[in-house]
């Protein structure tokens, strides 16, 4: 559950980047013969692509960890797991 909520948070950040990118214009910044109008800023989009990939890989890694934990704690209640593992 917590991992999913983290995913929601990172989606929010991604959406914010896209919003900033499209502040000045909406068209895809591809060089063409005809000028279509104001272009979107390509830099935040390029940058957030990196962040999406990183976020995705972290998500995968955490889910693998949770799968291991689920063998002994089928309900995956984080409070219970924490209680067992605090020294």
């Amino acid at each position: 559950m917590k991992i999913i909520s983290m995913d929601v948070m990172s989606t929010g950040v991604i959406a914010y980047y896209v919003l900033i990118a499209s502040r000045d214009g909406l068209f895809t910044p591809i060089l063409a013969n005809t000028q279509k109008g104001a272009y979107a800023d390509p830099v935040p989009q390029a940058v957030i692509l990196t962040a999406i990939v990183i976020g995705f890989s972290i998500q995968a890694l955490m889910l693998v960890g949770v799968m291991k934990l689920a063998q002994d704690n089928p309900t995956l209640e984080s409070n219970e797991i924490e209680k067992n593992n605090m020294p």
Binding site: M6, I58, L61, M62, G65, V66, K68, L69, I81, N85
Partner: peptide, 9 residues
């Protein structure tokens, strides 16, 4: 694994 997950989160 729990400590590592907590760290990463």
């Amino acid at each position: 694994i729990w400590v590592a997950l907590r760290y990463l989160f």
